[in-house]
Design a protein around this nucleic acid. Structure first.
Lengths: 135, 135
DNA sequence: TAATAACTTTACGTTAACGTAAACGGCATA
DNA sequence: TATGCCGTTTACGTTAACGTAAAGTTATTA
């Protein structure tokens, strides 16, 4: 039997509320099976939710996250469709790479700053009288 | 003479509206000099604005971006202050690294997916009579 | 001197992304 | 039988992050 999840299972796992998950469904980003009224989420639904939330963490809007998800669900029947898909993937790739670069430069300058702070702290602990002058 | 900027200078450069920049000021994230009524932005203000906008691109809220900026502006007079600062920097570093990892795994899986698409496309082009002759 | 452009403040409007509350249904258990 | 518990729909409420419009100020230019 392939695994399924209730809405509160996923809510707990991903640390969101059921309301949030239902909201994503109302935006057309999830369409879980139903058992009567109740939503039954598959492993695939779970992957989709993970994609949505990662997109959000990276600063994409839900609309943008939806676009990305739709790329992964796109039909690949004809060569034309595949070419269009590959172009869109390249576009999104650029956005993602820009975010990664942003994160990297932020990390670098933060590390440099922290290094200067540690240096200053070391001097203070040595008892050295270092005046506050900018460098 | 050290360089200054008008609000529309910065708005143009960073592709935001003057309203946005004034909003950041109202949130305590910028405090440009004034010449009469008019705001005069220094190079330092410009750096701060860049920090804010990078934070936003990475999915931080303005409140979170403000926290980060305040770390860079924190007093470093005493050893105690420096130790607290270094801890907070370490926290933010973790968040940033998580974002970078998120971006990296997203890029990886996107690249794998694109590779499968290209493979599929190659197969289609080998099997079918394709009339497209683009460059 | 009048007009134009860029700036200002004030204040109400808008949208995304949910939060929250009410009222209801089905199922297990005490 | 009733008491929770988990789920449901419906619908109004909330907040962050600005947009937009109105009305006034200063500097330059025709």
């Amino acid at each position: 039997m392939t695994q399924t999840f209730s809405i509160s299972d996923l809510a707990r796992e991903f640390d969101v509320t059921p309301r949030t998950i239902r909201y994503y469904e109302s935006e057309g980003m999830l369409s879980p099976a139903r058992k009567g009224q109740r939503r039954i989420y598959s492993l695939r639904d779970r992957v989709t939710l993970a994609l949505i939330l990662r997109g959000k963490r990276l600063g994409f809007s839900l609309a943008e996250a939806k676009e990305i998800i739709e790329l992964y669900d796109a039909p690949q029947g004809e060569a034309g469709q595949l070419r269009v898909l590959l172009e869109k993937l390249a576009d999104k790739r650029l956005e993602l790479e820009a975010k990664r670069r942003d994160a990297e430069t932020a990390l670098t300058s933060m590390d440099e700053y922290a290094a200067r702070c540690r240096e200053r702290l070391r001097q203070l602990e040595n008892g050295a009288d270092v005046g506050a002058s900018d460098g």
